[in-house]
Nucleic acid binder design. Structure first.
Lengths: 137, 137
DNA sequence: GATAGACCTTCCAGTAACTAGAAGGCCAAA
DNA sequence: TTTGGCCTTCTAGTTACTGGAAGGTCTATC
């Protein structure tokens, strides 16, 4: 069985060495085995685990959510429905964020369209920002 | 001219007292005047400034960007074009975020659609997360 | 054997933008 | 006078890392 130092694992997984140590320190992943010189060593299995973490993080799951997914992953008796529940909740979060950002984009766009953008100081964007309260609260 | 205590300003602007103090401590807004008992007091003008900050934050400008906008707001010789540049850059940021989130949503949705979500342990979501590297890097 | 460079270790601090809480002062009303 | 609510400052926690310092280790080269 091949073993890897932290730098090699970082290169393989796309998770930086710093971040791997950080994940270990927070308990997201189990403590790595150590060589006689104190260096961390990782098995294929440990690398696989980190890859799982990376994929889930790339999909926008929070570190806490990844922890939950890892527990389900490790649990032979897990129910598919539980994982699906997490994923659906996550999807809803994403959709809320998209909605909020689209509102933001529209407002910002409108503001920009009103602005002549010239060499003069009168600026509808600043005027709007400074305008009376309650306009959109 | 009416003066307000920090709590009243918080109620008027929607910015919490804690956050107002925080903005002062970071230099985003100038230090408030003080009453003889040491309490902060705010003029209409100061309230107006805070309202500006709130609106810009609500539009998703970072605190640093708000600082730039405040400087332009205060600057009688400002050019409308400069403000517009900030706003356009901000709009582009928002659009990038929306694109990234939409990709995320699509991937997550596909994952969920593949999952039967039943009482059995086999789960395509976990399998996908654990799958071979390089699939989407 | 010495030394250089790349790698590893730990620990501390900083990022963004607040928020929570502790400990205590001030003020108005009953 | 005491109660409650507001105000003050200071410290620390949040999320998910990242940067840097100080130092040990390994490998290759001279």
């Amino acid at each position: 069985m091949s073993l890897y130092a932290i730098g090699a694992v970082a290169a393989q997984t796309g998770v930086s060495a710093k971040t791997i140590r950080y994940y270990e320190s927070t308990g997201l992943i189990p403590p790595a085995a150590r060589a006689s010189n104190g260096y961390r060593v990782y098995s294929e299995r440990a690398v696989h685990l980190l890859r799982f973490v990376k994929r889930a993080r790339d999909l926008g799951f929070s570190v806490e959510q990844v922890g939950n997914l890892l527990a389900l992953w490790a649990d032979e008796k897990r129910e598919s429905a539980e994982v699906k529940k997490l994923a659906v909740a996550h999807l809803e979060e994403i959709e809320h964020k998209i909605d909020a950002l689209q509102d933001l984009r529209n407002t910002t766009r409108t503001l920009i369209e009103c602005c002549h953008g010239e060499d003069r100081p009168d600026c509808p964007i600043l005027e709007n920002l400074a305008s009376q309260p309650g306009d959109d609260d």
